[in-house]
Amino acid sequence: MVTPPTAPTAPGRPALRIATLMILLAACAPARQAQPAPGMASFRPAMGDVQRVPKIGDLGVWMLTGSLRPATWLDQPYHSRTLREPVNVVMLDRAARTPEEATARLLAALTAAGYPPRSMHSDGYWGLLGGEIRSQLPRSGQGEAFSDGPAYASNNHGRMFGPWKVPSGYVFTGAFSREDLSLLPAPRHTYNSFQVARENVAARLTARSAYKKTSYLNLNSRLDTSMTTTGDHDGRAVLLVAAP
């Protein structure tokens, strides 16, 4: 009589889970962006890459890489096209008295909204306003982004840039997106939506912080050509204001 094969023993299952987790963590390993060269003497945004926003200034409409080029989801194609990453969140703090206070208030607001800094994201990005670039927040240099969940699962995440001083307060710009984790053909983060993340972070900030959603800014940043796309982005950024 042949004895039927037994089911795998319990000790093998934790090992499989650990191996799976290691694969996921490797897929989420942060990609570092090169730091831009000192100064902006040679930096010239392309036509349409900056939009004049009343009471805020000339706003760069893309998240920029360390080479000061529009970010393109780490060059992963989306339906065979280049996916460009737009600025879709603008936050104005009318109560802060210094850049340091504005930054501290922004970090506290995002944490209260359920978007603390989380690791395993690409970093080293930049934003542009009024001809001046600002590095991303979080600024840990440890592969962090503001996110509502861990990087090894679907999550909404983003980076903020600033602050810049304007007559009405301190301005931050941000680029938020929803991503999924794909295991095939190789583990990687894949694009899901820009609008879903924008609306989620705006709703949470409005409900849980001093920042309140007030309107949308038309940045004319929707792209849909044979070579380049902005996915479901509608060309707008949500404006959130923290009043005195």
Results as ranks from 00 to 15, higher is better:
residue 3 T to D: 07
residue 4 P to S: 09
residue 4 P to M: 08
residue 6 T to R: 11
residue 6 T to K: 11
residue 14 P to R: 13
residue 15 A to C: 11
residue 15 A to Y: 15
residue 17 R to I: 01
residue 17 R to H: 01
residue 22 M to W: 02
residue 27 A to G: 15
residue 27 A to E: 06
residue 33 Q to N: 15
residue 33 Q to C: 12
residue 33 Q to S: 14
residue 35 Q to S: 14
residue 39 G to M: 13
residue 40 M to D: 13
residue 41 A to R: 14
residue 42 S to N: 12
residue 43 F to W: 15
residue 46 A to M: 05
residue 46 A to C: 00
residue 48 G to A: 10
residue 50 V to I: 14
residue 53 V to I: 08
residue 54 P to R: 03
residue 54 P to A: 04
residue 55 K to R: 12
residue 60 G to N: 07
residue 63 M to E: 04
residue 64 L to D: 06
residue 64 L to N: 06
residue 64 L to Y: 12
residue 65 T to D: 09
residue 65 T to W: 10
residue 66 G to H: 06
residue 67 S to A: 13
residue 68 L to G: 07
residue 69 R to F: 09
residue 72 T to Y: 13
residue 73 W to V: 11
residue 73 W to E: 14
residue 77 P to S: 10
residue 77 P to C: 07
residue 81 R to H: 07
residue 82 T to F: 12
residue 82 T to N: 07
residue 84 R to G: 00
residue 84 R to K: 14
residue 87 V to W: 07
residue 90 V to W: 08
residue 92 L to H: 03
residue 94 R to K: 12
residue 94 R to D: 03
residue 95 A to W: 03
residue 97 R to Q: 15
residue 100 E to F: 12
residue 101 E to A: 14
residue 106 L to V: 00
residue 108 A to T: 05
residue 108 A to Y: 00
residue 110 L to K: 08
residue 110 L to M: 14
residue 113 A to F: 02
residue 114 G to P: 03
residue 114 G to S: 01
residue 116 P to C: 07
residue 117 P to D: 01
residue 118 R to M: 13
residue 119 S to M: 10
residue 121 H to A: 08
residue 121 H to Q: 08
residue 122 S to H: 12
residue 124 G to D: 09
residue 132 E to S: 02
residue 134 R to M: 14
residue 136 Q to R: 02
residue 136 Q to V: 05
residue 137 L to Q: 11
residue 137 L to P: 03
residue 141 G to L: 13
residue 142 Q to S: 13
residue 142 Q to V: 05
residue 144 E to M: 14
residue 146 F to L: 14
residue 146 F to G: 02
residue 148 D to W: 00
residue 150 P to K: 04
residue 154 S to P: 06
residue 155 N to Y: 00
residue 155 N to I: 02
residue 157 H to Y: 10
residue 160 M to V: 14
residue 161 F to P: 04
residue 164 W to K: 09
residue 166 V to C: 07
residue 167 P to Q: 07
residue 167 P to N: 05
residue 168 S to E: 15
residue 168 S to K: 11
residue 168 S to T: 15
residue 169 G to F: 05
residue 169 G to M: 03
residue 169 G to S: 07
residue 171 V to I: 08
residue 173 T to R: 10
residue 173 T to H: 11
residue 175 A to Y: 04
residue 176 F to Q: 04
residue 178 R to T: 04
residue 179 E to V: 15
residue 179 E to D: 13
residue 184 L to C: 06
residue 186 A to D: 06
residue 188 R to D: 08
residue 191 Y to V: 02
residue 195 Q to G: 00
residue 196 V to N: 13
residue 197 A to T: 11
residue 201 V to N: 03
residue 201 V to G: 01
residue 206 T to D: 12
residue 207 A to S: 13
residue 207 A to T: 08
residue 208 R to H: 12
residue 209 S to W: 05
residue 210 A to V: 00
residue 213 K to E: 12
residue 214 T to W: 04
residue 214 T to L: 09
residue 215 S to L: 06
residue 218 N to K: 13
residue 218 N to E: 10
residue 219 L to F: 02
residue 221 S to G: 15
residue 223 L to C: 00
residue 224 D to L: 09
residue 226 S to I: 10
residue 227 M to L: 15
residue 227 M to Q: 15
residue 227 M to W: 12
residue 228 T to K: 02
residue 229 T to Q: 02
residue 231 G to D: 06
residue 234 D to K: 05
residue 238 V to F: 11
residue 238 V to N: 11
residue 239 L to D: 06
residue 240 L to G: 03
residue 242 A to I: 00
residue 242 A to K: 03
residue 243 A to H: 03
residue 244 P to V: 04
residue 244 P to F: 03
